[in-house]
Every structure is written in C-alpha cells, then in structure tokens.
Design a protein around this nucleic acid. Structure first.
Lengths: 263, 263
DNA sequence: CGCTGTCGTTGACAACGATCAATGTCCGCT
DNA sequence: AGCGGACATTGATCGTTGTCAACGACAGCG
C-alpha cells in the first residue's frame, strides 16, 4: 500500500505538500458541512470539544487520477472522507482483471473500522480531495461516544440496503435500463452542474470501467447512451458529460419507476 | 404486518401455541450454538447473567411456507434469528412483481435495529424455526454492552462486503456461471445432507423465485441445471435437490475461481 | 374421479448483447 | 510536428438468453 506520507506516492500522484495540515478546525468543519453526509452527522452528535480534537487530527489530501489510496488486503491507517471527486472500490481478481464494486462520491466515508484489512482497493477515478483521519483515533472517538457509534451503525444498515437495491437494479435487465438507472442515481448522489435548466451529469468512469461496473461491454454502453440520446432523454455533451433533457423519461427508461435512495 | 401474537397469523400460518416459550434459557442456548453465527458470538461476549436475561425473553416460532414475518415498511417489534429453514428478503414493486434480494439461512439475523422500518418483506421460503427477541430489549442490551455492539457493527461491515461480492457474482456472466456460484455458495452457507459421499444441496426456491434472484428466466435456469448435469458436475435429484458430483468442477463452472466468503 | 392451476421442462424463434474488426479522435511523448 | 497508444464509436456477425408455446407431472378441490 502506498501511504500518503510516502514520498514516492507524493511524487507519482501529485499530492501536495499539505500546507492544509495547518488549516484550522473551523475551516475544516466548514469544508465538511456541504451536505448531510455521515461525517457531518457524526460531528453534530459529538461534544464540540471532541469535534475540535478530531478535526485537529485531520489532514487534507489532493489525489490524482489513478492513485491507489488503500490496497486490497492492507490495513488502512486512515479513514477517508470524500470532499470532492470520485473514488472507486475495486475488486482485483487473480487473473489481473479489475472489477468496480462501488463508487465513493463526496460525503462518502471509506476505510474499514474495528476490523481486518480492506477487501477492496480504493482508487481515484478522478482528481479528488480527501479528508483523512487517523483510524485509531477515529475508532476511539466512536468507542467513547456511543451516540456517534450508533449513527455509524445505522449508516452501515443503509449501506447494506443500498448494496442490495443496486443489485436489484443491475440484475437481469436491459443495458439501456442499467445505464438510465446509473445516470439517475449518479445525478442524485453527486452535485451536478445545471446549465440552462437541464442537469449535466458527470460520469467519472471510462467506458471500460463503467462497463465492468454495470456488467456490460463498452460497445454496448456506447449504444445504450446513443439510444437514450435518440429517444430524446439526454444529450451526450462529451463521453463523460450528459445533459439530462427529460428527467421523467430517464426514470421511466430505468425500467420500472423503481428508484434508489441515497447511499 | 402480521405479528406473531396475532391470532389470524397463527391460524393462517400454523404457528403453534408456543409451549416453547417456557423452554429454559439453557436449552435455548444449546439450540443457538450450532454454528458460529452472529448471535452465538454476541452471547459469548455478554456477561452470563445478561445472556440469561436475553434468552429468557426469547421465543421459539415455527413458521410455514409463504408466511410473511415482517412486512415492508413495517416497524418490526422483533429481531429474529434463523434456527432452521430458509427465509427471503423480498422487494415488492409497485406493479406487484416480487424480487428476492437476499436469503436468510440458519445463523442469520434479521430485523432492523436502532432504525426505521424494514425496507423489505421477510418471507418464509420453507418451513422454518425462528428464535425471536423483543427488539427494544435487544437494542438495550447492545446499548449497555459496547463490546457486543461492536460485534454487531463488524457483522454489518461483513454484510456490506457480502452484498457487494454477490453483486460481482451475478453481474454480467453466463447463466450457468451464476447457477454454479449460487449452488456452491448455498452449499457452504447451509448444512446439507451427505449421501454416499456426495453433498446434496437443497434449493428452497421455486424456479421462478430463483430466476428473480439470479436475474434470469425459469427456462434459462432449467437449461443451466441440465447443462451442469450433462457436464457431470451434478445430478438433479428433484427440482429442489442437487447432488454435487464434482465439487471442483462446480467451482470452475462458476466462472473464475472467485469464491465468496461466508456472509 | 376428473377438473383446474401451478410448476418444471423442452422446443422454436427472435432479440439482445458479446465479440471481432475498423475508424477517428485526442493526448502524451519524443 | 510526427508518432504511438488509449479511448469512444460504429458496423457485422454470432452466441446466449428472453419470449412464446406446448407438454407432462402433480396437488388441491369439487
């Protein structure tokens, strides 16, 4: 695993020299509070002093595309909170094939607490900004604050549900459905730009990665996107940006009107 | 939701009059200790007195095929521990279609703690035996015993991983692969009979339900099962029982040698 | 006992997606 | 600028699966 403090990592990935470490807790708290993510809830539940101490241990990191944050099988020393960008949880098979099993977008937390090594590699799909906490300290805070720990637990319950619901979405349906589902979920999970009055969704995956994620081939995805464009549902701005023209039609195209909750 | 104490439920489902409620805690503990499930770990972590009190509140229930234990959207008053049989977590869509999103086999726990209503219906796929705890009391025990709560939390982490790994298995592969995966996972998760020296796996789902679960059609499954039989991997005893002839070949047929951990 | 509905299976066919191949574009590199 | 490589797209073909239909086995029921 390549740790943040590893100079090779800094060189390769363009991690900056982190003057941000000196940033005040207040400023960090402001950076965190842009959503209703888990971390924000945790901080709200904690005594202000604890919040202060936790944030004083946090460091900001800028990571570049392709950086590996946690290697599969490694025991991560950090817990990360995504501020900006997109990370992926990647399952690496013996034959070297990669398979994306989950996405991490702003307000998501990664890093396995109280437990063994990570089962996945965490990899940056786009340039990203991460708030990183020492795992041991984070765990201790949870241990000392049952309220917070319970919030974490409920969050995990939600994640289990989200994983199952995702399963439902990608299983046994047409490629167009899955692509439409993916786009409308992504639209809800990420902050997106609005131009005119149509949302532009940013897809930070290459066609190949997205294909792995959705259980299809790049060619099939290409056809699905263009089918949706022909239907007037969206417009392909570039291979990674899609302007949603008809949000209702997009939802309809995802199959039933089955929709995912956040998570 | 139909609660256990509801006489309509008892009539419809054949729930017995529960003389088992009087069973001693010791006997219950013996019933629980047939695996290394979560509940067993929890009980081990608790002070014997607490264990005793918790088990004194537990009740045994026999449920019949098709019984609904928790309705979607309902707040369950119980936490259930599966002793025998198979339950399913069922997502019910607006158009009435059902979709199985997860199976519960012996040593699994269901019932949402610390949180809102269940997102799924819990339904018995076969006759089953359930150990049921009052949810509020169970929660209180966890609240009072951080050690136990942490066990529960780690268990949830595993569930999230299992859900993601399952996703990996069913996404984008041939029907035969999915069927083979399903069988070998089921073989490991359930206690199965051995006849001669070949394991006989019991599949408690109808072809239709299994099709929904695996993202395929009943016809396709039928062909997949018979393809595996032609390959000499297994023998179809009856539509719900399969004798595994060549375990290695089964694993090979599940695609890569990708195998699931328990969960 | 025969009727009816459900279930598992099989066959024929069509639709969908995977595969193979070719093209164009963009980007980094020298 | 020129080159090579990665990426997205498109077309053609083939394999797998969904769909439609029919059949036998079986259980529940009048």
């Amino acid at each position: 695993m390549v740790r943040f403090s590893d100079p090779r990592f800094a060189r390769k990935s363009g991690v900056q020299d982190m003057p941000e470490q000196m940033t005040t807790a207040r400023a960090l708290k402001a950076a965190v509070s842009h959503g209703n993510g888990l971390l924000e809830k945790l901080l709200d539940a904690l005594h202000p002093d604890v919040t202060e101490r936790l944030l004083s241990q946090a460091t900001l990191h800028d990571v570049a595309v392709g950086d590996t944050l946690i290697e599969r099988g490694a025991r991560s020393e950090d817990v990360g909170y995504v501020l900006d960008g997109t990370l992926a949880m990647v399952q690496v098979l013996e034959d070297g094939k990669k398979h994306i099993v989950g996405l991490l977008v702003p307000t998501d937390i990664y890093g396995r607490l109280f437990d063994g090594p990570s089962n996945y590699r965490i990899e940056a799909l786009s340039a990203a900004r991460i708030l990183s906490f020492p795992r041991a300290f984070f765990e201790q805070v949870l241990r000392d604050n049952p309220e917070a720990e319970r919030l974490f637990l409920v969050h995990l319950l939600d994640e289990v549900d989200a994983a199952r619901e995702w399963l439902l979405l990608i299983s046994g349906r047409r490629a167009v459905n899955r692509v439409a589902s993916f786009l409308s979920i992504l639209q809800r999970r990420t902050r997106f730009k609005r131009t005119g009055d149509h949302a532009v969704v940013h897809v930070p995956l290459s066609r190949k990665d997205l294909a792995q994620y959705l259980g299809a081939r790049p060619e099939t995805l290409s056809r699905a996107f263009h089918e949706l464009e022909d239907m007037g549902v969206l417009r392909i701005v570039d291979p990674h940006h899609f302007r949603i023209i008809d949000e209702q039609a997009l939802i309809a195209a995802s199959g039933d009107d089955l929709t995912l909750q956040d998570g």
